[in-house]
Amino acid sequence: MISYSFDFSFLLTTWPAFMRGAWQTILLAGTSIALGFVVALVCAIIRSGKSKLASGLVGAYVEVIRNTPLLVQIFIVYFGLPSLGLRLSAETAAVIALVINTGAYGSEIIRAGIESIAKGQIEAAECLGLNKLQIYWHIVLIPAVERVYPALSSQFVLLMLSSSITSQISAQELTAEANLIQSETFRSFEVYLIVAAVYLALSVLFRVVLWAIGEVAFVRRRKLRT
């Protein structure tokens, strides 16, 4: 039987690098989530809108993204776009790819929320004299996002975990830092166990923050639980 003795002593010198990696992942994922939400919202609105052409285009975007690997999408942005003269830093390319990716998944989630709003709600709002825009904002969009917020949160946590793939283009984030440490210490097992633990902690952190945002944004959720 192979015996393996764990040795975590390298942590004494490398822990700042892990922390830096974690912080970079927070920044990368946080930016991508914020921008991805906006893209998802806009796409969901267009897709459930009246224009067949616009809705079709968004539909095509969503299907292409959902049916191709994230890694390939990242490669296209990072290695492909320079052929068109658009040279991006690894981090910028990573954010763009993650935003495009999460925008597609998120828009389907939000669209489900929009379509769950009963027609009677809209008629009641019409009868109260609200115009189309007011109805869309107060009666459709806000409750739609409130309804799908848990699903959206899970999608965002998934995005944070997926951001580890961007280490493949050497974007600065946790997994990339771990790869570096691993190549210097040769303690692969320990390094990736630690990385896994840090990702776990980050997941908890993201869930807590997203939950808190939901508590603030959707008063009913908070009030009805108590």
């Binding site: 009677g120 009641a124 107060h138 009666i139």
Partner: peptide, 13 residues
């Protein structure tokens, strides 16, 4: 004109 519906149509949120 005001209107009241069978299914109330109150805004749940």
């Amino acid at each position: 004109v005001g209107m009241v519906f069978q299914s109330y149509n109150l805004f749940p949120h």
